[in-house]
Simulated scan of single mutants.
Amino acid sequence: MPTPPPTGPLVTRDTLAQQLRALGVKPGETLLAHTSLSSLGWVNGGAVAVVQGLLDALGTGGKGGTGGTLVVPTQTGDLSDPAVWQHPPVPEEWWPTIRATMPEYDPLRTPSRGVGVIPETVRNWPGALRSAHPQTSFAAIGPRAAEITEGHAPDCRLGEQSPLARLEKLDARVLMLGTGYATCTAFHLAEYRIPSPRVAVGRPAPGGGWEEVTEVSITSDRFDELGYDFERDRPVVVRGTVGAAETRLFPMAEAVAYAERWLAVHRPREEEI
């Protein structure tokens, strides 16, 4: 069968930057971006062009020295206990060997997983910095990259000693480029500020071997519902279209404050350990 023609619209670095500016992205600001390349249409240059367009809209020019700062999640959920893997699970008799031989996290070499090709492109961008948490790291390009990524505590996935708290203090905004509220990592910061269960989290230890740390339990369960209510109740969410992607832009601090109140009422959770 013949290959079907690509579906549009045709998207370029320049059109992305123009549409992001029209949405309200400002040069010099700090932006936490959740992205979906496939939602945009036919992008000339793929993920590289998207990152270039984002940096252009921020006034960073792709060099990382001036203008705004682009931040993306570069999570590595595969560096976890095989006992909890579901997509797909692995045989139980494999678990000890997997734990014993799993490579340790390396910010320079460990690829991101499950967050898409755009964050992986940011991670490998010249001048990009990446935080040190072995499962929930963030990568950043721009003048505030070091301030945001440094000091990510190994026992604080997405709380007060993570890049999320620094982004909140810097009045960052969240850009959801073709993604839904289920991907909104900012909501997880609220989980650390309300009564939440704590769990044992297994992962490869620095220098080799296996370790367990006690952490706040995090889940994106009901984040879509939370986001819908936030958008309805707080007139701070700017909506528009970039390429073919439905896009949202909003202040992170307001989203976290709303999530604290919402989660405490709608998603009370019991202690897990």
Rank of each mutant, 00 (worst) to 15 (best):
L170D: 05
Q161S: 11
R173H: 14
E160Y: 01
A245T: 04
S38C: 04
P89E: 10
E191A: 04
G243Y: 09
S162V: 07
P91Q: 09
R261I: 14
T12A: 05
G227T: 08
R21I: 03
P119A: 12
L177T: 06
R113L: 13
T219Q: 09
T76G: 08
T179D: 00
A257D: 15
P197Y: 02
E231W: 00
D56Q: 13
V174F: 10
A57N: 08
P119T: 11
G127Y: 07
Y228G: 02
G65D: 15
V50R: 00
E160N: 11
E104C: 12
T219A: 15
L37S: 03
Q161W: 05
L167I: 11
E150P: 00
R232N: 12
C156H: 14
G202K: 02
T30E: 04
Q161V: 00
P154H: 06
P73G: 13
T35I: 01
R198G: 11
V90I: 15
P73T: 08
P9M: 01
T121S: 04
N124T: 15
T121R: 12
T247D: 02
V237P: 06
P4E: 12
Y181L: 00
V51S: 03
T179M: 08
V71K: 02
L164W: 07
P9Y: 01
R234K: 10
E215K: 13
T101Y: 04
Y181S: 06
G61A: 07
Q52G: 09
V242C: 01
A132I: 03
G24A: 09
G207V: 09
P103Q: 12
D221E: 15
S38P: 07
A182W: 05
V71I: 14
S137K: 06
S131W: 07
E212K: 12
L249W: 02
T97H: 13
H87D: 15
A83P: 01
P111C: 11
R13V: 01
T69S: 13
G67S: 07
D14F: 01
V265L: 12
A205F: 05
G178M: 05
